[in-house]
Simulated scan of single mutants.
Amino acid sequence: MSKLIQSEFEWADKQYKYLMKTVPEDKMPQSFKDGKLITKDISWWCSGFYPGSLWMIYEQTKDPEIRKEAEKRLKMIEPNKTFTRDHDLGFMMFCSFGNAYRITKNPEYKNIILTSAESLSTRFRPNMQAILSWDKMADFKGPVIIDNMMNLEMLMWASQNGGSKKLEEVAVTHANTTIKNHFRRDFSSYHVIDYDVNTGDVLNKKTFQGYADSSAWARGQGWALYGYTMMYRLTKDKKYVMQAQNIAKFILNHPSMPEDKIPYWDFDDPKIPNVPRDASAAAIIASALLELGQYSNGEEKQHYIDTAKQIIVSLSGEKYQAKLNENGGFLLMHSTGGLPLNSEIDVPLIYADYYFLEALKRYKDWYL
């Protein structure tokens, strides 16, 4: 695995240099379809994944050209530190500035993270005991999506690194409310819980991107697994690691999980196996399992590590990994963003690359 991981980072360095040449100065790369690069502006929820990926590549290769691009892109998204229109600020600012600060210890980056965390905390609704994901979306009154668990890391980190104690209280409260309302008996997660903003009552348990309200949308299960593993790291509250282990059991034991461990876009799509895979879900799950292995023992620990390794090997193979200077410069193929929305189906996605790189780093740091 050592040689594989090293070669993957060296290849990622070359591939992203190709991507860099095609990304407009005022946009961020999101995907690639029909020979065209798809980009978004900085308020898009994925704006932090490109600079975050660049920083992880730089960390391993020390390529100054990669670092220069990473720094340029950080300046571009810095205005997001006061963004308060949805819950995605953790993705936007911690995946980017968090990695940058971890690697460089630049105090300016830390201050930007602290400001971003305060901005995110303004979306906490006390009556709901949760962070409101979207202000208005379709028929939802007070929507909270499972993805929101990922944004708690920035709140926790900020609170523990000079920010307000309130930030940690918000994160813990949100995580506890999500345990209470988002999960079924088998520890699969609903995608959207719709709350009454004034009373906190649960109005509906729905989906926005999954196959059905009652189905297990693959990437959502990955967000849940990753989120509670991370919350255990930052609180040492055992209920979080137990939640993560139960979610892992659901994912790893699901009868529709393919042999190569790259899940179909939704575990319950009745048309399996004739439906798209989701490499982004696989990358998130691999990264989460590697961390969960740090907090587990015996056969359970080994199962997590072995499965994550299998995912990394699968994603590194010809079926999922792009050839150099192809795929628009993205690393991975075959991700699915929102199939019911007819959006990003069987395409590369920037966050699939990000969590794949993170999984490579974690395997190298913890298990080699």
Rank of each mutant, 00 (worst) to 15 (best):
M20Q: 15
A283L: 11
F330Q: 04
P79V: 10
A248P: 03
I42C: 11
W366L: 14
S335K: 00
K249N: 12
S53D: 03
M242F: 05
L290D: 09
Y58T: 06
T235E: 01
K33L: 13
P340E: 07
R123D: 12
Q209R: 09
T82N: 15
A282E: 09
F187A: 11
A283K: 10
T178G: 00
G298V: 06
F208G: 11
F250E: 07
L54M: 07
I112C: 12
W44P: 08
M93P: 09
D346R: 03
D139V: 11
K105L: 13
W223T: 01
A288P: 02
D34T: 09
E326M: 07
S287M: 05
N99K: 15
Y351V: 08
N106W: 06
A244Y: 00
A279E: 04
N204Q: 15
S343V: 08
I284W: 06
N181G: 04
G142A: 08
L132F: 05
K323H: 10
M242T: 15
H254F: 02
G337P: 01
S214G: 13
W45E: 13
T122D: 08
N127I: 07
F140P: 03
V313D: 03
P107N: 14
S335I: 00
M149Y: 05
Q310L: 12
T207I: 10
S189P: 05
I193T: 09
K81Q: 14
G163A: 06
P340A: 12
Y190Q: 08
C95P: 06
K301D: 05
Y264W: 13
L292E: 00
Y101H: 14
Y363A: 10
M93E: 05
A212I: 01
G142H: 05
I77T: 02
E358V: 06
Y304P: 01
W366G: 14
F32K: 08
G52F: 03
N127Y: 11
E291C: 01
I193V: 15
L292S: 01
S43T: 15
Y101E: 12
M242N: 14
A244I: 00
D88Q: 07
M231K: 00
N274I: 00
S53V: 04
N106P: 09
Y58L: 04
K205Y: 10
D186I: 09
M150F: 07
